[in-house]
Nucleic acid binder design. Structure first.
Length: 216
DNA sequence: CTCACGATCAGCT
DNA sequence: GCTGATCGTGAGG
C-alpha cells in the first residue's frame, strides 16, 4: 500500500520549522505503470520569501515563474535552472509570504532501478555513468536537479498539491530523523546579504546528501 | 537588448 | 580540483 499523505498543517508553520519537519519524510512519485517511486528527504533549504530573503525567487514579489510560492502551503514549486534540470520546492506558510522549502537530496527507498534508468538516459560515457552503474545508489538523487531527474519531475508538475495522495506527486510520513545539522545554503551569490545564513538542514551523517560544490 | 544567474557533466590537469 | 558548455528566467538599461 502506498503511504498516506502528510497534512497541510505541517506546511503552514515558519519556513525553517517546515524545513526541519520535512527531513526524513517521503516523496512519493506515481508511475504510469507499476508501484510508485519513493525517496526519503535528507537535505533541504528554507527560502524566506518576500522582502526577507534576497536569495529567494519571491524576494521582489510574484512573477509568472514563482507565483506558486505565494499560494497556499503544501504545493509544488518547480522551476527550471537554466535549461539542464529542474528544482522541486514545497510552498510553506501560505499568507502570500512567498516562502518555500527547496528539496535538495533524497535517499532512494523504492524504485531505485527506475531512478537509475532516468539518470543514465541523460548521461554520456563519462565517470558519472560509471559510478551509477557500479551501484552507488546514494548518488542517484544527491542534488536538487538529480532528484528531479530521478522522479521525472518537470515544470508540468508546477503547482500540484503535495498533500493529495491521489495526485502524481505527494509527500508522506517517513521514519523519524535525528536532530538536523544546519549549515549555510549552497550556491548563493557571495554578494547577497543572505549569503551564509544557516538555512540548509541535513540528516547528519547521511551519504545521500549533495556533494560539496566548487565555488566559481 | 544584454547581462547575471545555478546545477550538472565531461574532460583535463 | 579546476574549466567550459549548456540554457530558462528576469532585472536593468
Amino acid at each position: 500500500m502506498p503511504p498516506l499523505p502528510l497534512p497541510r498543517s505541517l506546511f503552514e508553520a515558519d519556513v525553517r520549522q517546515v524545513a526541519v519537519a520535512l527531513l526524513g519524510q517521503l516523496v512519493v512519485r506515481r508511475e504510469t505503470s507499476g508501484p510508485p517511486s519513493i525517496g526519503r528527504i535528507v537535505e533541504v533549504e528554507a527560502y524566506g520569501g518576500l522582502d526577507l530573503d534576497p536569495s529567494a525567487h519571491s524576494y521582489r514579489g510574484p512573477t509568472p515563474r514563482c507565483e506558486v510560492m505565494f499560494g497556499p502551503a503544501g504545493h509544488a514549486y518547480v522551476y527550471a535552472t537554466q535549461g539542464r534540470c529542474c528544482c522541486l520546492n514545497v510552498s510553506a506558510v501560505g499568507d502570500a509570504r512567498g516562502q518555500a522549502v527547496l528539496l535538495r537530496a533524497l535517499e532512494p527507498v523504492a524504485g531505485a532501478e527506475r531512478m537509475r534508468t532516468r539518470r543514465l538516459a541523460r548521461l554520456g560515457q563519462g565517470p558519472t555513468r560509471a559510478r551509477l552503474t557500479a551501484g552507488y545508489d546514494h548518488e542517484l538523487a544527491s542534488g536538487p536537479g538529480r532528484l528531479c531527474l530521478c522522479l521525472d519531475v518537470d515544470r508540468s508538475l508546477n503547482g500540484v498539491d503535495l498533500t493529495d495522495g491521489d495526485g502524481p506527486l505527494y509527500l508522506a510520513r517517513g521514519e523519524a530523523s535525528p536532530p538536523p545539522l544546519w549549515t549555510p545554503r549552497v550556491g548563493l551569490n557571495p554578494k547577497s546579504a543572505s549569503h551564509g545564513w544557516p538555512w540548509r538542514a541535513l540528516v547528519p551523517g547521511c551519504r545521500a546528501v549533495s556533494p560539496p560544490r566548487t565555488l566559481r
